Simulated assay, not measured.
Amino acid sequence: MDYLQLAGKSILVMGVANRKSVAAHVGRLLLEEGAEVIFSVRSESRREQVAKLFPDSDIVVCDVERQEEIDALAEHVKASGKPLHGIVHSIAFANYSGEPASFHETRREDFLQAVDVSCYSLMAVSNAMRDCLDRQASVVTISISTTRMAAENYGYMGPIKAALDSSLCFLAKSFSAFSEVRFNAVCPGLLKTSASAGIPGYVDSYLFAEKVIPRGRAVATEEVANSVVFLLSPRSSGINAQGLVIDAAMAINYFDRGVVRGALGS
């Protein structure tokens, strides 16, 4: 039974970095569901790596900092002659090299580059793919479980993810003038991925999350991917301009008795 109704649907998955990334998990699930997946990656070297994971799939190089490459990707999709039923935007970048700085010391060039790659790229890709998208297509991006917690090590990416979350509403509204394309985000808690490992102090935060989460273990990347695939499917047709939080109830449990006692040393 094809419950998710994704068999034969064409989906663009952007941002596969390696086998552990959210985009890679999403791609595998989509292929299992019978979808036709086009992957886009940042560089030729990344394309060669991803080809080992998905040897039978179409893999295109697209650096979203270059508008001409976004346009070329759109032309590539259009040339297939098939409507695009979904886009997965799993792209983010922040320059965490060097010593971590306080938020107010964030460099202009770092902030603007992160906005461009992590937020504006969703707008640019959606606009470029406008004529390729099926009237009822679904666009899903990857955000974070909360942008209201000022995690020092995550730094300026918090406000940038907040901008990404807000952009969903405006994209959903503007696309509604000519389509029923939906824009949603999956907002996971802390994940064990290669990208997250590059965030200063992330391991400690991850281990703390496991203390706070009621079930005693952090969110798995597969759980996030499952939610992405659901939002891509027609089964989620009533969900638009929303952020689906996947944090295994961490947000309800900060005052867990054991956590409080540990913080107070009692």
Rank of each mutant, 00 (worst) to 15 (best):
91 I>T: 07
102 S>R: 15
102 S>I: 10
88 V>E: 00
90 S>F: 08
123 M>V: 15
80 S>F: 01
97 S>Q: 14
101 A>R: 15
102 S>M: 14
118 S>L: 06
105 E>P: 03
112 L>P: 00
87 I>S: 03
94 A>R: 11
83 P>S: 12
103 F>Y: 15
87 I>D: 02
105 E>W: 00
118 S>P: 10
107 R>M: 03
112 L>M: 13
121 S>A: 15
109 E>Q: 13
84 L>Q: 07
95 N>M: 01
89 H>M: 09
107 R>P: 00
88 V>A: 01
104 H>T: 09
99 E>D: 10
95 N>Q: 08
114 A>F: 00
87 I>C: 04
91 I>F: 07
90 S>Y: 01
109 E>C: 04
93 F>A: 03
109 E>V: 10
114 A>W: 00
86 G>C: 11
111 F>G: 10
81 G>W: 07
111 F>K: 10
96 Y>D: 08
79 A>C: 01
126 S>M: 07
106 T>Q: 04
106 T>Y: 01
108 R>G: 00
84 L>H: 11
126 S>K: 09
81 G>Y: 09
92 A>C: 09
109 E>D: 15
82 K>N: 11
118 S>D: 07
120 Y>W: 05
122 L>N: 13
106 T>I: 05
92 A>F: 12
120 Y>E: 02
102 S>G: 14
118 S>A: 09
127 N>D: 06
94 A>P: 00
114 A>S: 15
128 A>K: 10
85 H>F: 12
86 G>N: 11
114 A>C: 10
104 H>N: 14
111 F>N: 12
